[in-house]
Amino acid sequence: MNGMPALEKVYSKMGEAGNSLLSLFRIGMLSKRVDSFSLPVAYKELVVLGNGPSLRPLLSDHSSFLEGKDLMVVNFSATTDEYAELRPKFYLLMDPAFFDDEATRQKLFVPMVEKTEWEMHLFAPVSARKHPVWQEMVSRSPYIHIHWFNATPVEGLLAFRHFYYKKRLGMPRPRNVLVACLMVALQLPYDTIYLAGADHSWMKEIWVDENNVVVEDRAHFYDKNSTQRVVSSHKLHDLLNSMAVAFRSYHEVEAYSKKTGKKIINITPGSFIDAFGKMSID
């Protein structure tokens, strides 16, 4: 019995070494060289705005908190009325549908190009390079500049992971777009990164009906007061495992932020993310 903890550590290290080799293979197959973001920024703080429902009261009741800070938005933010008022400096997309689905491209990039009248930097995964249509749409705007990032999952030994994070060749498994946002943000010249609209309260929004079908009641800030009911294509254990991957990735992001000497602060009220220090702005 006394030898079990030591044996488990050996197994753990062997597993980490195996994951390192697998990640090295992924990097070789999927990752590309990307340039670092070297443009000067006006502020020392960045706010990453997720699309959780808690973002609406932030924008309506505490918008003064955003003053004097640069902003990063995600997904369908450009379709909202608040987009032109926020004038985000950064925009990040990761879901393949934004780049390879025509209806999704039209829904997002048409208003993005029409509304953006300030210098904005759009981050997209290197895998999106192979889809020229959305790039042509974005090129119609003189204000939007495209930058690339590697969304390749990097797992394994800690030193190995941090080495390739720093090289911008991969990141913790980006099961949620905010994982990618935070890793890109850590490469930008900001000392403090605030995280808003990151409710991640999915466990309260999932249920199983009498036919054992998993149903999700999804809510986003741009849905106003409505909730979108979605029949999941996954079994419950698969869905919960996906959530676990996302929450674990945030802890890996936090460990890397400490390595870089930067601070991530979660200002989302009621957020289920337990990786970052929390702060109330009420």
Rank of each mutant, 00 (worst) to 15 (best):
W118K: 05
V245T: 13
L30T: 06
E210F: 06
R26Y: 13
E210M: 09
K32D: 09
K166V: 01
P153E: 07
L186Q: 03
A124H: 07
L39P: 03
Y190D: 09
V133A: 15
A196M: 04
F276G: 08
G15L: 12
V138A: 10
Q187W: 08
S141G: 07
Q106V: 14
L55I: 11
K69H: 06
S20P: 01
D274W: 05
I281R: 05
A128S: 15
V34K: 01
W202L: 13
E117I: 04
K204G: 15
L240S: 05
M4E: 14
I273M: 07
A255Y: 03
K258H: 14
M171C: 00
R26I: 02
R161T: 08
D209W: 00
E114M: 11
L239E: 05
A219K: 14
V48R: 01
S271E: 09
L186I: 08
M94A: 10
K258S: 06
M171Y: 00
A103D: 15
L108H: 08
L169K: 07
L30F: 15
P96H: 07
V208E: 14
H131R: 02
Q135C: 04
L182S: 09
V73P: 10
R218S: 14
N211H: 09
E67C: 01
R218A: 12
P53Q: 07
Y256I: 12
D223T: 11
R129M: 14
R168Y: 02
H234A: 13
Q228W: 05
L108P: 07
D199I: 04
I144A: 04
P142E: 10
P189I: 02
T260P: 03
D95S: 11
G3M: 07
L58W: 03
H234M: 12
K263F: 11
P111A: 04
P142K: 00
S60Q: 15
K13C: 10
M4W: 11
L157T: 04
H145F: 12
E205F: 00
T79I: 10
G261T: 07
M243V: 01
G52M: 03
K107W: 13
Q228M: 12
L182N: 02
Q187Y: 06
I264A: 04
D217L: 05
K263V: 12
L178A: 05
L46C: 12
N2L: 11
H131E: 15
R87M: 14
L93Y: 09
A246P: 02
F160Q: 01
L22A: 15
K278I: 14
A97G: 09
I281M: 12
Y250D: 06
V184K: 04
S20M: 02
W207T: 15
I206F: 13
E102W: 10
A42P: 00
Y222S: 08
F98E: 08
G68R: 03
I206R: 06
S63D: 14
I144P: 13
F247R: 11
Y222H: 10
L108V: 04
F272Y: 12
R33E: 12
F98D: 11
W118H: 14
V184E: 11
V73G: 10
D101H: 09
H62D: 06
V177Y: 04
K9A: 15
S139C: 02
Y91G: 04
M203R: 12
D100A: 10
D238Q: 13
R33H: 03
T227C: 08
V41C: 08
V184T: 10
Q135I: 06
W118A: 02
I265E: 00
F221Q: 00
L158Q: 13
